[in-house]
């Protein structure tokens, strides 16, 4: 990291604050969302300035790209829904949100001073144990080995989020639940021919996106990259297919969807249980096969993350996914 502050850094921070301001106080929901995406991309550039390439990639893929797509879907649904304007925030709610935000700001500011005042013992520790971790990239070693427990719980949060999205979608979906897709495929409300131009174009682009996503996953073992970035790319490929009309590909009730959604979490679970049964500590891989274990966990997590993003996007669309 450089010690000097350059004009570029100052410009970046000023633009970041400006984008955040417009995202919060934009003239309508759509422009606020656009500024939220701009904010995410600028944030990614700020992470690059701080030499945190992994975080920058994740921020650009997930923070700006996919969250932006989800938010735009929500905005469109909000604009079309009759009576949605009635969901005005009350004064009390505003006050409590403001108070909570101030509390979070105070906590973050306090942690800033703590970082300043003590040298973290972690980087040299990671440097010393990198050889045993099964990964040549310190960030991957941290996420998938030293603190794999945290990543496991993160994948769990994603699983819970996707289940919540499905549940909320079911709650508001007018179509009856008993018509489970596995037995009786419901007729899509919007019929799109499966051989139209966009469908063919999207299908052509799909292998390329999956290839880039796979490369991103593979790079994670020795360079910035990994499950979250790769999952976001493959998830984006799936969302492209959804927009192009491949809606029938995603059936929320099917065993395939459910098992793929939980694949990441259950792989971590199996790995943890295996390590415990073998007499080790939880998620402690044998150093000889640590590289393979990390790659397997990352691959499983990638698939689950990609599908989770697709499920969320499908649930945010006005007519939703197949039941």
């Amino acid at each position: 990291m450089r010690d000097r502050i350059e004009i570029y850094d100052v410009l970046l921070v000023v633009t970041l604050i400006g984008a955040a301001w417009r995202a919060l106080f934009g003239k309508d929901a759509f422009s606020a969302t656009v500024f939220f995406i701009v904010y995410g991309l600028l944030m990614a550039m700020a992470w690059v300035q701080l030499d945190a390439i992994d975080v920058a990639l994740a921020e650009a893929c997930v923070g700006a790209g996919l969250t932006g797509a989800l938010l735009i879907g929500a905005v469109r649904q909000f604009e079309r829904a009759p009576g949605a304007r009635a969901l005005r925030r009350t004064m009390g709610l505003r006050a409590s949100i403001g108070a909570l935000s101030l509390l979070a700001l105070a906590g973050l500011t306090a942690s800033l001073f703590e970082i300043e005042n003590r040298r973290s013992p972690v980087p040299p520790l990671v440097e010393r144990s990198l050889g045993d971790s099964g990964s040549a990239h310190p960030v991957t070693a941290m996420l998938l080995n030293f603190r794999a427990f945290d990543t496991w719980l993160e994948i769990g949060v994603l699983l819970i989020a996707s289940l919540a999205a499905i549940s909320i979608h079911r709650l508001y979906d007018p179509s009856p639940i008993e018509g489970r897709a596995s037995t009786a495929p419901t007729r899509p409300r919007l019929q799109i021919q499966s051989q139209t131009q966009p469908w063919i174009m999207a299908r052509t682009l799909l292998p390329l996106l999956i290839l880039v996503g796979g490369a991103m996953l593979w790079f994670g073992s020795h360079a910035p990259g990994g499950a979250f970035q790769s999952g976001a790319l493959i998830g984006a490929a799936g969302i492209l297919l959804q927009i192009a009309g491949g809606r029938s590909a995603l059936r929320l009730s099917s065993l395939r969807t459910r098992s793929l959604l939980s694949l990441g979490f259950s792989s971590f679970w199996l790995m943890a249980a295996g390590a415990l049964l073998a007499g080790g500590r939880i998620l402690e891989y044998p150093p000889a096969s640590a590289g393979a274990a990390i790659l397997a966990l990352e691959a499983a997590a990638t698939l689950s993350i990609a599908l989770t993003l697709n499920v969320m996007y499908a649930c945010s669309r006005p007519w939703g996914p197949e039941p």
Binding site: Q197, P198, M201, A202, L205, L208, I243, A244
Partner: peptide
């Protein structure tokens, strides 16, 4: 360029 061309067309068609 490729991604932009495809997504633009797909979204416009949609």
């Amino acid at each position: 360029l490729l991604a932009s061309a495809v997504t633009c067309y797909v979204i416009a068609e949609w």
